[in-house]
Amino acid sequence: MDALKSAGRALIRSPSLAKQSWGGGGRHRKLPENWTDTRETLLEGMLFSLKYLGMTLVEQPKGEELSAAAIKRIVATAKASGKKLQKVTLKVSPRGIILTDNLTNQLIENVSIYRISYCTADKMHDKVFAYIAQSQHNQSLECHAFLCTKRKMAQAVTLTVAQAFKVAFEFWQVSKEEKEKRDKASQEGGDVLGARQDCTPPLKSLVATGNLLDLEETAKAPLSTVSANTTNMDEVPRPQALSGSSVVWELDDGLDEAFSRLAQSRTNPQVLDTGLTAQDMHYAQCLSPVDWDKPDSSGTEQDDLFSF
């Protein structure tokens, strides 16, 4: 819950932080000083300027060897085509990944977070970031790969997607708890209302004896509580940590079903599988986004697919 609360507080303090972009060759504004600060901008989305290598189908939802083989196929196909790589912007948030063309600003792909089953910074092609997700059109699994400016960037994108998945799962947990509370309150309110109706004398007997209905007592009954809980029953509950912020979080049926399955089948359902080692994760978390744009010590960066 700490990640969720800190993310909400950060967004309320400075929503404009989320509009910064990394990996864009110096076009961005001043960047936060450390990885923790940038992680807090996830709610509205972190932007990464990358190059799209392509996509291939895979048979399993996750796995280092599986993704490595898929990336190898994608890279080989991209090299064989001889075409310049498409420059894209990857927007990562707890909602998922939005992929747009840098030149036309046209939407290429919009992947809900619950469809993503794996992401990684490839070991062999260490400047490549990739994720595996279920197609929104059918049940097939797709591996999408992107060329980053350097290994640090690939690791940073991988960690960002993993963190977005974690925050999304926490949102789901909060929403589920809130819905259970509202359902319980609604049920209790309905029981109270039913009890009051059972003990209320029939209207005919009131008229016969000349008694008047006590409207004041009726007004004191917990009807307002019942209506408050039943009027918006169809509205999706939102985490309290975000009250007053500009973010509107809505959970669709697909996300609810997917996270429910994860909660039942996995020990740590909030953790998205990645190909990063503990050492890689520690190294990337210690980086400032400013470091992502620094040239690798191995030599001059080449803006070309064939540089790796």
Rank of each mutant, 00 (worst) to 15 (best):
A130D: 10
E180C: 10
K84H: 10
A76G: 04
V167H: 03
E64M: 04
D37T: 09
Q136T: 08
H282L: 14
A258F: 04
L287I: 14
L272S: 01
R39W: 15
P239T: 14
G54I: 05
K166T: 05
I113Q: 02
T41S: 15
E301C: 08
P15N: 08
T267G: 05
Y114V: 12
S117G: 06
P202N: 02
K127P: 11
E109K: 04
A130C: 06
Q163S: 12
F146Q: 03
A221R: 00
K150S: 04
T160N: 09
V161D: 01
L66Y: 08
V92T: 14
N110Y: 08
P32T: 03
L223M: 09
A278E: 07
A241Q: 11
D252F: 06
K176P: 01
L103V: 12
I98R: 06
A18N: 03
S265H: 00
T231Q: 14
F171G: 12
I97Y: 06
Q270P: 02
H28G: 12
A284N: 02
E216L: 11
L141H: 03
H28P: 12
H125E: 11
Q20T: 15
C199N: 03
V248D: 05
A241Y: 03
A7Y: 09
A68Q: 04
D2I: 06
K127Q: 04
L99F: 03
L215Y: 13
G189N: 05
I12E: 11
M55V: 14
K184D: 04
E59T: 10
S205P: 12
S112A: 00
Q86G: 10
E59K: 05
D304N: 14
E257K: 00
G190I: 09
M233G: 12
R9D: 14
L66S: 12
L193C: 07
S288R: 09
G45D: 15
P202I: 02
Y283W: 13
Q264C: 04
T274G: 02
V207S: 06
S81G: 07
D256A: 14
I113G: 00
A18H: 05
E40G: 15
Q20K: 04
Q20N: 11
S16G: 09
K30N: 15
A278Q: 08
K62H: 04
D214L: 10
V88E: 14
L272I: 01
G244T: 01
L242E: 01
N232W: 11
H282I: 01
R9Q: 02
P94N: 09
S246Q: 07
V271G: 01
G194F: 04
G26S: 14
M281H: 08
I132L: 12
S67D: 02
P32L: 12
I74N: 09
Q106P: 02
F129K: 12
G189V: 05
E64K: 11
S245H: 02
D253I: 00
T77E: 08
D234F: 06
W249S: 13
F169E: 01
H125C: 09
E216V: 10
P222K: 01
K62L: 03
D253Y: 15
T104Q: 06
S243M: 07
P201K: 02
G82Q: 11
A7E: 15
T267N: 12
A76K: 02
T300W: 05
G23P: 11
S16L: 14
N229R: 04
E180D: 15
E301S: 02
R261P: 02
N105Q: 04
F169I: 01
S140H: 14
G254R: 02
G54P: 02
Q173P: 01
K152I: 06
L99K: 05
T209V: 05
H28K: 09
L262N: 02
A164D: 00
S260L: 00
H144N: 15
D126S: 02
W249L: 10
T56P: 07
V248N: 04
V247Q: 03
P239G: 04
D214R: 02
E44R: 05
T158A: 05
S135C: 11
Q134C: 03
S245F: 11
L4H: 02
D280F: 05
D37P: 10
V157H: 00
D198H: 01
G275R: 02
T149Y: 04
A228M: 01
D303K: 05
S265F: 12
T36C: 12
A133N: 05
A219G: 15
D291M: 00
R29S: 09
E217L: 10
P289G: 08
D280I: 00
A278G: 02
Q302P: 07
P269V: 01
G190Q: 06
R266K: 02
K62Q: 15
A156V: 03
L103C: 05
T218N: 08
D273V: 08
L17P: 12
H28D: 10
D296Q: 00
Y283A: 10
D122G: 05
P269W: 01
R261F: 07
D191L: 12
L255Q: 08
V248C: 06
L50E: 05
E109Q: 05
V111G: 09
T56D: 00
R261M: 12
T300C: 08
L107H: 09
A162L: 10
H125A: 02
L213A: 00
R115C: 10
T89H: 02
T77Q: 09
A130G: 13
G26A: 05
D198G: 06
T160H: 08
T38A: 14
L159M: 10
M55C: 10
K127M: 08
S6F: 11
K84W: 11
P32D: 11
N211I: 11
D122E: 15
T89R: 10
S243H: 04
T231G: 11
K166C: 14
S81T: 07
T158Y: 01
V226P: 05
E188G: 06
L43Y: 13
I97D: 15
D183Y: 14
R115V: 12
H144F: 15
Q279S: 01
K204P: 03
L251V: 06
V236T: 05
H282A: 00
S49V: 15
L215C: 09
T89I: 14
W249Y: 03
D253S: 13
S112M: 01
E301N: 06
S135D: 07
D2T: 05
N229P: 02
I97L: 10
I113S: 00
Y114F: 13
P239C: 06
Q139E: 12
M281L: 08
R39G: 02
E142Y: 15
R151A: 02
V192R: 02
A70N: 04
V290Q: 05
T89K: 02
N105I: 07
R9C: 05
F259I: 02
L212F: 03
E64S: 07
L66G: 12
V174M: 00
A168F: 02
Q197I: 05
D304K: 07
T225F: 07
G210Q: 04
P237G: 07
S117E: 14
A168T: 06
D2L: 06
F259S: 02
E170Q: 02
K184Q: 11
S49E: 07
K166M: 14
C286L: 13
R238Y: 01
L193D: 10
C119G: 10
D304R: 15
I113F: 02
V111K: 15
S288P: 00
Q264S: 00
T38N: 14
E216I: 01
L47T: 01
T160A: 10
A284Y: 00
A263R: 12
F129Q: 11
S16F: 00
K79D: 05
Q270F: 08
Y52R: 04
K19M: 01
D304A: 06
P202Q: 02
N138D: 14
G82I: 03
A78V: 13
N34S: 13
L66K: 10
V92S: 11
L251H: 11
L147G: 10
T277V: 08
F306L: 05
N232T: 12
Q136H: 07
A258P: 04
K79G: 13
Q86R: 15
K5S: 00
D122N: 14
A78D: 15
V192Q: 08
A156N: 01
L4W: 04
Q302R: 02
E250A: 08
E257N: 10
I108D: 13
E64D: 15
M281I: 03
M281G: 06
A168V: 06
D198T: 07
D183H: 06
A221C: 00
G244F: 03
S21A: 07
R27A: 15
Q136I: 11
L212S: 05
D37Y: 14
Q106C: 01
A284S: 04
S16E: 10
L193Q: 11
L53N: 07
E301F: 11
K176Q: 07
R182E: 06
H28N: 08
R39T: 08
F171Y: 04
D273F: 09
A219M: 01
Q173I: 13
I97K: 10
E217T: 15
W22V: 14
V92C: 10
A69Q: 15
K294C: 01
K152W: 06
G54V: 14
A284E: 00
N138L: 14
R39H: 04
R196H: 12
I74M: 12
Q279F: 03
